[in-house]
Every structure is written in structure tokens, then in C-alpha cells.
């Protein structure tokens, strides 16, 4: 995702002439080479000074540039939160905050580097658009969408080496619309970001274990959320799962739960998110997700377990 972002931003710059890249001492190093070589004036490492990175981005945007402010997700939005809120969102400026390592991607770096509530925090800001692509191809599309947005964007990325999940997707990427990336009839899994890979693996396993047919939907645009599209899914499938690498509050689970109620959905809804706690564990990304209770086996087992009673919604 990191390299795809860097390559795409170079493509965008060649076509639009108003891109500016600011980094706070974290950069997609090698892959930014072509951009830096061609636009040396429009790539600045401000140092470890995230508040000023966002302030500069706002000033640049007020002068007509389209800045991308890039660093590890926690530092691109939490450290300079008030600059994001006031300098960017209050002015409704086309600045994109790029957060690398969204969720708990940085699995050996500890809680200081985990952006596990970023969707909730960014979605709460007026004017903000929140994008979380699931694979490199969607990262390219989301970067282009951010470059065309009229206001602020938070672009939540993973890290590097993510597999392709969308080459055979039946739907194209359209900002603000959910995207079916795997066809199915009985169960639908809603997911976003890099954990969509786990959602796809769950789909395969449920099909193998139960014989049912499982769809996967990439909810790459968390704000504005495609409420109609999600309501359609809730009406269309017997079982809907939400798999998200985010705190249980203020992310996709909470919003889908509310939508299910509002739309009178009769499906079985099960939500799988990170736990509401900091975990003091280190290891692979999969290991940390497992510590939070998220694994292919666990989600599959829960999904295939008999529904408790027959309430219209069970969250």
C-alpha cells in the first residue's frame, strides 16, 4: 500500500500540478524517489513536527495546493488533532492526512503506534471524508479519489506487502459506495482496510465448512457511509458479518448495527472488531489480531454457530 500510494501520488502530480507532499520524518522512502526527483520543491520533510506539518498543509491549501500529509497514522491525526480539526476541517480544505499503519499494523511497536480508534475520531469531524482501502489497487483508487476531493480526507493505509483482493471484484471502486469484491448469496461480510484479507479467508472457510455462499464487501469509504448500500445488504442476506480492525465504538460495527435497526433488517448480524483495550503484546500482525479475538477460525466458528433465539438482530 505504501509503495502504491507513492507511485500513485507521482501519477497524480503529473496530471494535476497542485500536489504537495509533506512528511514528518516518516516516508515511503524509495518509492517516493520519482516524485522527489521531479518535484523537489513540493516534497518537504518538516521533521518530527506533526502540528506544523498540518498547519503548513492548511496554508498551502489556502493558496491552492493540494497537500498530502504523510506519516504513521497515530502521528498524522492524533498528535496534531486540533490542527486537523481547526486548520483543515474548519476551513474545509482539500488536505489529505495519510496514515500509514492504520489499526494495529505496527504489531511489534506497541500501543503508541496503534491507530485502533482512528475511524471513530476522524468520522466525528465535520467535512472529513474517511477512506480505508483494502488492497494496493484500492489504495491507488482511493489516492486518486482523495486527490479529487473538495475537502479534507483521512486516508487510512496498511503498510507494505498486502495481497491483491480486488482484481476479480464484480464492482468498481466508487468513492462513497460499498464495493462487492466477492460474490455470494447467503452470508455477506462487510469489512475495510487490510483486515479485508481475513474477511476473504473467512468467506472461503465458511463456504468449505457449510456449503453456503459468502460475499465480501469492501466498505472503503467509512465517511460518508453508503447507508443505502449497506441497508440493501442487510435486507438481501440472511447473515451479515462485520469484520473490522477498529475499536468497537464509532467504527463500522456500531454504524451497521444502527442501520440494521433503522432499516428494520431481519438478518442475523454479527460484529467482530478489536477489543476496547490496549493490548501489551508483540508479534506478527495476525498474532495481535488474534489477541484481540480476531482470527479466521474464531470468526468462522461464531458465524456458523446456531443463532441464539431468533431476534431480528444480534450484535
Amino acid at each position: 500500500m505504501r509503495d502504491t500510494f507513492a507511485r500513485t501520488i507521482y501519477d497524480v502530480a503529473k496530471k494535476t500540478n497542485d500536489v504537495f507532499v509533506l512528511v514528518a520524518d516518516i516516508s515511503p522512502a524509495g518509492s517516493m524517489g520519482p516524485f522527489r526527483a521531479e518535484y523537489p520543491d513540493r516534497f518537504i520533510n518538516v521533521g518530527v513536527a506533526e502540528q506544523t506539518m498540518i498547519g503548513l498543509a492548511a496554508g498551502l491549501a489556502l493558496r491552492g495546493f493540494r497537500p498530502f500529509a504523510y506519516t504513521i497514522a497515530t502521528f498524522s491525526i492524533y498528535r496534531p488533532f486540533e490542527q486537523v480539526r481547526v486548520d483543515v476541517c474548519y476551513h474545509d480544505l482539500p488536505v489529505t492526512m495519510v496514515g500509514i499503519g492504520g489499526g494495529i499494523t505496527y504489531s511489534t511497536l506497541g500501543g503508541t503506534h496503534h491507530a485502533q480508534e482512528d475511524i471513530a475520531v476522524m468520522s466525528g469531524l465535520p467535512n472529513m471524508t474517511v477512506l480505508a482501502p483494502c488492497d494496493p489497487a484500492e489504495t491507488a483508487a482511493a489516492t486518486w479519489a482523495a486527490a479529487r476531493a473538495s475537502g479534507p480526507v483521512y486516508l487510512r493505509l496498511g503498510k507494505a506487502g498486502e495481497p491483491d483482493l480486488t482484481a476479480e471484484a464484480p464492482d468498481p471502486f466508487v468513492m462513497g459506495k460499498i464495493r462487492r469484491i466477492r460474490q455470494g448469496r447467503d452470508v455477506c461480510i462487510l469489512s475495510f482496510g487490510t483486515i479485508t484479507k481475513m474477511a476473504c479467508d473467512v468467506a472461503v472457510k465458511i463456504e468449505a465448512d457449510s456449503g453456503g455462499s459468502v460475499a465480501v464487501v469492501s466498505v472503503h469509504t467509512l465517511k460518508p457511509l453508503d447507508r443505502e448500500g449497506i441497508a440493501r445488504v442487510l435486507g438481501e442476506f440472511d447473515t451479515v458479518l462485520v469484520v473490522e480492525e477498529h475499536a468497537p465504538y464509532g467504527g463500522l460495527s456500531a454504524q451497521v448495527g444502527a442501520l440494521a435497526y433503522e432499516s428494520g433488517a431481519r438478518c442475523r448480524l454479527q460484529c467482530f472488531s478489536l477489543q476496547d483495550r490496549f493490548i501489551h503484546a508483540y508479534g506478527s500482525h495476525a498474532y495481535l489480531l488474534d489477541k484481540h479475538g480476531l482470527s479466521v477460525d474464531r470468526i468462522t466458528r461464531a458465524a456458523l454457530a446456531p443463532a441464539p433465539g431468533r431476534s431480528s438482530v444480534s450484535v
Binding site: 502540528q51 492548511a58 496554508g59 493558496r63
Partner: peptide
């Protein structure tokens, strides 16, 4: 909110310089 204007002004000045 105090502490915002200098960064924004610097961004404007940077744009003009570039």
C-alpha cells in the same frame, strides 16, 4: 485556538515561495 496561525501563515508563505 492559540498556536495555529503561525503554521498556517508559514504554509501560505511556502506556497508563495515555491
Amino acid at each position: 485556538s492559540l498556536g495555529h496561525g503561525l503554521g498556517i501563515a508559514a504554509g501560505m508563505a511556502l506556497a508563495d515561495k515555491v
